[in-house]
């Protein structure tokens, strides 16, 4: 049960944020996160992908890797960007980072070129995921 993962490559377009959101919500449910835990993950993933879409110049796709162990679920999202990142005065990006930090146990954004990445972690036992069947 360790070493399983889900990989997605999504077009870097706004209408695909909901695809990431709903896919990760379904995965969270499968992993035994409760309703609140799954909702937290769904929200954080949507904010992460929205954040990756903010740079105007960048790659045409966002890669998403979700991997889990008995202890936690890790979600990594990445988009190639030309300028490396986010404007410092980007109010919505700051809100997105606050939300991710609140709803996940760990959330880190890295804007080092040539990629903008978001790494999220949620402990499985912190969301009532103990006894999950996957």
């Amino acid at each position: 049960m360790n070493g399983d993962e889900v990989r997605l490559s999504l077009p870097a377009r706004p209408e695909f944020v909901s695809v990431a959101r709903l896919t990760l919500s379904a995965l969270a449910g499968r992993l035994g996160f409760g309703v609140d835990g799954a909702e937290d993950i769904k929200l954080a993933v949507a904010e992460a992908m929205t954040l990756l879409l903010r740079p105007k110049a960048g790659g045409d796709s966002v890669s998403l890797l979700a991997a889990w162990t008995d202890e936690h679920l890790d979600i990594d999202l990445e988009r190639r960007v030309d300028d490396g990142g986010l404007a410092e005065d980007d109010e919505e990006a700051a809100i997105a980072q606050l939300v991710m930090a609140e709803f996940m146990d760990e959330a880190a954004v890295s804007g080092a070129p040539p990629a903008l990445t978001v790494r999220l972690r949620k402990q499985r036992d912190s969301a009532g995921a103990a006894g999950a069947h996957v």
Binding site: E91, E92, I95
Partner: peptide, 10 residues
């Protein structure tokens, strides 16, 4: 509602 919505109403 996400951060873009919050930014919009702000």
């Amino acid at each position: 509602l996400d951060s873009t919505g919050l930014g919009c109403i702000t």
